[in-house]
């Protein structure tokens, strides 16, 4: 056989092996979390808050962290949405093909790459200046900063997929840019927008480093924006840090819950993206 063919065969084999390695690392992670988390998971854990001595292996659950995470990520997603959508629309309708639109896109891409611990430190600084303690609100601010670039770029791309002729058609009927943006383009790109929102939510709910000092941690359910809030990633981290195997098992169960939430979100966004297309013109 010709050497060039042999060489190609060797490299294709390496490529397939690499693909198998990457995919099996995914399988390994999911497998490990399920295998160690599932036996430790029970209903009581999901519907109780930590009782006294929980971190020593006594009674209780992680409802505080589950609810706290949902509140944190939910609030952050709402806040980020209020900022992201106008920016995505602005980039598309008022800064089309202009250099400053590209600069903002670049800035968003760069923001995307900033480590979450830096967001945490920055948000903590902001809170200091605003006189906030570690609280639900602080965590929401930190997470919304983290989610902002993810959501905006996702929306930007979703809006970019809308056919330009649709916009022209709306303009030619006498609609203003704002009307075209809200009534035509937003509706047309709803599946993509929703995917961006869910992606950002998923990123927010899984992040630990940014809420570490901004949201704090508590054994109670979140009641006020100005009280500390627990979160799942930190609950996992703290439980794992204890020397008690029983508590560590709960950390695995909590990791399973978190992974479950994140995977469900990504599945839902795939499903919804296909569903909400009733009025979408292709």
């Amino acid at each position: 056989m010709k050497w060039s063919k042999v060489e190609e065969k060797i490299f294709v084999a390496i490529m397939i092996c690499s693909t198998v390695v990457v995919l099996s690392s995914l399988a390994l992670i999911l497998g490990t979390v399920i295998w160690r988390g599932l036996p430790a998971l029970n209903l009581a854990m999901l519907i109780q808050t930590p009782k006294g001595g929980y971190y020593l292996g006594k009674e209780g659950g992680i409802l505080n962290a589950i609810l706290g995470s949902l509140f944190l990520a939910g609030g952050a997603t709402a806040l980020a949405l209020a900022i992201s959508l106008p920016i995505a629309l602005y980039l598309h309708f008022y800064a089309e093909r202009s250099w400053h639109g590209e600069v903002v896109r670049l800035a968003l891409d760069v923001l995307w790459g900033i480590p979450s611990i830096v967001y945490g430190a920055f948000a903590f600084t902001l809170m200091l200046w605003l006189g906030l303690r570690a609280s639900l609100l602080g965590g929401i601010i930190a997470l919304s900063l983290l989610e902002l670039p993810i959501m905006t770029r996702g929306m930007d791309e979703a809006i970019n997929m809308v056919h330009p002729l649709l916009k022209e058609a709306s303009y030619s009927l006498g609609a203003t840019r704002l009307e075209t943006a809200l009534k035509i383009v937003v509706r047309q790109s709803i599946p993509g927008l929703l995917t961006a929102v869910l992606l950002a939510f998923g990123r927010g709910i899984g992040d630990a480093a940014s809420v570490l000092f901004t949201a704090g941690f508590t054994d109670h359910l979140p009641t006020s924006l100005f009280e500390p809030a627990a979160s799942l990633p930190l609950a996992i981290f703290f439980q794992l840090s204890t020397p008690f195997p029983a508590v560590q098992d709960r950390a695995y169960a909590s990791a399973l819950v978190l992974t479950g939430i994140v995977l469900t979100l990504s599945l839902i966004s795939r499903r919804l993206a296909g569903r909400l297309t009733e009025h979408v013109i292709r």
Partner: peptide, 23 residues
């Protein structure tokens, strides 16, 4: 394959940490 690789990107870092500790 591509959605599976995207899935890998969506796993929270603390879960990666748990996997690291366990495996």
């Amino acid at each position: 394959i591509k959605p599976l690789i995207d899935l890998l990107a969506g796993i929270p870092s603390v879960v990666y940490g748990v996997w690291g500790v366990l495996t």
